[in-house]
């Protein structure tokens, strides 16, 4: 019994020693942070914290992260990445970055109200902040240098224009989340770009079978529909399935990418995908913070910097599929 207890305490002691040894020569970045910032204006190692609302394992956000990490390697920036879909946890991550006196902060603001205090605290502490992906309309108000993301109305307009160029007069826009303002903006933009008739169809992204049935009913009933614009890759795949056998020859286009969508584009079953290029939403802000630090540059002139709409068509689908394997598209 004594021996057993000895083993436990021994293990604890080893753990402690390991912990101490592993970090004894490690210097906390925060210790030298504020003093170093004004003096070292060019070159040198920077620390940038990226805090997003993406949950760990989300395919979209893992591409954003890869972009930020690659920029860090290219530009001698130490990039840390944290993500949480829980707004108060995201605020705590921002607070942690501020306490560490990072040289720059990149934040996605899905719920700007919840992050207001923490972002403003960072700005107040003299940390340059760049917002990405969401919350662009609050970016300047909170004191961020700029916003990097996609303007949904502009992206919708470009998609509508592309469909109009393909000869489409009548299209449907498939909304998969009620009340998501970004989706409404995409459809409104698409209507402007198309110039013809655009109906909105409501489906539920959590019930793909039913979404497929709804779309099939719509396509079977109305052969004048020349195009289906979906706003989510899973719904796009459902639309492809709905079309086969419905007698309709509507063109299908979608927002955002997935492996299935890229394959369908290669096969010509989907015309194109509007890509907001998440890699850029990770890479560019790190680069901008480097330039801001070294050369006092700001990008965008108070306007958001757009990472989209980029387009994936039959022409580049094979290449994009190849790049997707590297985790950059």
């Amino acid at each position: 019994m004594i021996r057993r207890r000895g083993r436990w305490w021994g293990a604890a002691a080893v753990l402690l020693v390991l912990a101490a040894a592993g970090c004894s020569n490690r210097v906390d970045i925060g210790a030298a942070g504020p003093a170093a910032t004004p003096a070292a204006k060019t070159g040198g190692r920077l620390t940038v914290a990226v805090v997003t609302h993406g949950a760990a394992g989300d395919p979209f956000w893992s591409i954003v992260k890869n972009g930020a990490v690659q920029a860090g390697k290219d530009l001698k920036v130490r990039v840390t990445y944290q993500g949480s879909g829980v707004p108060q946890t995201q605020a705590q991550f921002i607070d942690a970055a501020v306490n560490q006196h990072v040289d720059g902060l990149v934040v996605s603001m899905a719920n700007p109200d919840a992050l207001k205090a923490s972002v403003e605290r960072a700005v107040h502490a003299g940390i340059p902040v760049i917002t990405i992906n969401s919350g662009g309309d609050k970016s300047v108000q909170f004191g961020a240098i700029t916003h990097v993301g996609q303007d949904e109305t502009i992206a919708g307009r470009a998609a509508g224009k592309r469909l109009a160029d393909a000869g489409v007069k009548h299209a449907i826009c498939v909304v998969h989340e009620a009340g998501n303002i970004g989706l409404t903006q995409r459809c409104q933009g698409a209507a402007q770009g198309l110039g013809g008739r655009l109906d909105t169809v409501q489906v539920n992204v959590n019930n793909l079978a039913q979404a497929q049935a709804t779309l099939r009913a719509k396509l079977t009933a109305d052969h004048s529909i020349g195009a289906v614009l979906t706003l989510n890759p899973a719904i796009a795949t459902a639309a492809v399935a709905a079309e086969s056998g419905s007698g309709s020859s509507a063109k299908i286009a979608t927002f955002d990418l997935s492996g299935d969508v890229t394959t369908a584009i290669e096969q010509g079953r989907i015309q194109f995908a509007v890509d907001q290029q998440p890699y850029l939403q990770g890479y560019l802000p790190v680069q901008m913070l480097r330039l801001y630090h070294d050369n006092d540059n700001t990008v965008g002139g108070g306007q958001p910097v757009l990472t989209g709409p980029g387009f994936v068509t039959k022409a580049n689908a094979a290449k994009v599929a190849e790049l997707a394997k590297r985790g950059t598209r």
């Binding site: 753990l15 402690l16 912990a19 101490a20 004894s24 490690r26 906390d28």
Partner: peptide
């Protein structure tokens, strides 16, 4: 205590 000591050694912040 172990978790505190562990992280306190890793980071002064």
């Amino acid at each position: 205590v172990v978790v505190f000591v562990f992280f306190a050694l890793l980071s002064s912040t």
